[in-house]
Amino acid sequence: MVAAIVFWGLAVVAVAAGVAVFVVDSMARATYALAVSFIAVGALIILLQQSYLGVITILMMVMEMAVMAVYMVMFMGMNPALMPMDMTHGKKTAIGASTGVFVLLASGALLIPWPERRGVPPEDLTNALGLEIMGEKMLVMAVVGPVMVATIVAGVVLAAGRTRYDRLGDDLRRRPADDPQPGGIGR
């Protein structure tokens, strides 16, 4: 009974905060409305007794939103807080697509004959998750590693206005490096 009330309460918060993302007139509010929505989802996952996944969802999403907020603020086409704004684009297509997907998923959730649970969940879920990651799913990690390295390299290459040649000279020998902001390690 309590679980049901909490579930519905969190569900309403998650959806309402999600709606707020498109209603509010400030990028900061929109981003953190999304963060609230994710926190509610994380709490729902905790409610499903997946402690680790729920807590890590909250952790990651708050952190990503904190960083995303500054990007949203910086790259907005106009003032990010004091002008009326509209977060939607291509309204008709978007509304059509999202309604369609919602109907599909909701009817799927309601109509599919969900299987009965066989067996019991392991005693320590985090432990089981760790064994999975290091065991059969090791391949996942082996793939994720290079992908993350590539992400770092690609991200920095794309974002950098100045590269090591600007800093260290054409022969990479200039010491200290020439940087807009002096000081730090290897100055």
Partner: peptide, 23 residues
């Protein structure tokens, strides 16, 4: 009210050394 909420103007963009012309 658009350009100057509460009578104070909004910040305007400008040039910068790294090429990002934000406010």
């Amino acid at each position: 009210m658009d350009m100057a909420p509460e009578g104070i103007p909004l910040a305007q963009g400008g040039e910068d050394r790294d090429g990002l012309g934000v406010d």
